[in-house]
Amino acid sequence: MKRLTIDFMVGIFVLIGICSLAFLSIKVATNFNIGSSNNQTYALHASFSNIGSLKVSAPVKVSGFVVGRVTDIHLNTQTYQAVVTMNINDSYKFSNDTSAQILTTGLLGEQYVALQSGADTEYLKNGDTITLTSSAMVLEDLIGKFMTSMTTK
């Protein structure tokens, strides 16, 4: 076989392979890469008395639209509340009285942080803390409340 033919066939093979890899990384994998170098982000904190099963890299949504990701969750040892750190895309600004809530997608889906913008004209800056928070809905607590209300009736 001629050298040129081999080169040509190997070239086609490598191109097919690279096209497949591109297909896998663009069409199949998540292309929402907040926090990568081209997307500027800023950090916000929020403390919750119960975060349920919220995990790092869970989405942060406004009206269901993803604006950021949870980057860190740790426990504040003074207040014994869970502090959630979120990276928000720089192009979205939120007022000082924004509230944060932990919600669940569907009945058994993954949990995410939902932000609800307020009316204040001042915007939250990098490193600010969201003070208005409400905790995750825990199914066991709800059932417990339901049971106690049943028995008191």
Binding site: L21, K27, V28
Partner: peptide
């Protein structure tokens, strides 16, 4: 079909580790 796939597949975790 595509959005569920994109939601659960991570570029580094799944694609690169497979390679």
């Amino acid at each position: 079909f595509w959005s569920q796939m994109q939601d659960s597949v991570d570029l580094h975790y799944d694609v690169i580790n497979g390679v």
